[in-house]
Amino acid sequence: MDDKPLNALKIPQKLFDEYQNLPGALLPLLHAVQGAIGYIPDDAVPEIAKNLNLSRAEVHGVISFYHYFRTSPPGRVRIQLCRAEACQAMDSASLEQHVKSSLNIDYHQTTADGTYSLEPVYCLGNCACTPSIMINDQIYGQVSPQSFDNILSDLTIVEKDQG
């Protein structure tokens, strides 16, 4: 097996070593790969399959089953917008429209400059303070179109500060 693409994407062999003998290792390994490089490249599938003694179809089947796993690079800022009922009850539909039009992308898309990815999520467990969004691992509650703009501009300032 040619492991060149893996080297290019820097999936460390130690990940495979760590998970190889774990019962039901595929999900933890996929999490580790996505955690390390941000997504699970198609090129990694044969190597993952080989290391866990699975078929490529099995690995592909699992990656495609779960919404969280992605096969293309995410934007630097990953925005998850809750579409579930408790958020809808507080007019998340308006927020959704605003987010899509201000970023000029739809769900499952990344802005052309590679900054923002937008994904739907079905409940963030912040249902008493809705609508909710999560940006990377930070949750925000009672988000209005206006406060969404403020959150993004705060993020931009932080990013600039960090150079």
Binding site: L27, P28, L30, L52, V62, Y122
Partner: peptide, 24 residues
């Protein structure tokens, strides 16, 4: 073990499949 965003994995048998490293 961390799930991966599939609502159905709250169903117990689907959850077990997922824990075994399979489609839920």
């Amino acid at each position: 073990r961390i799930g991966a965003g599939a609502y159905i994995c709250g169903e117990e048998t689907s959850l077990l499949e997922s824990l075994e490293g399979k489609r839920g």
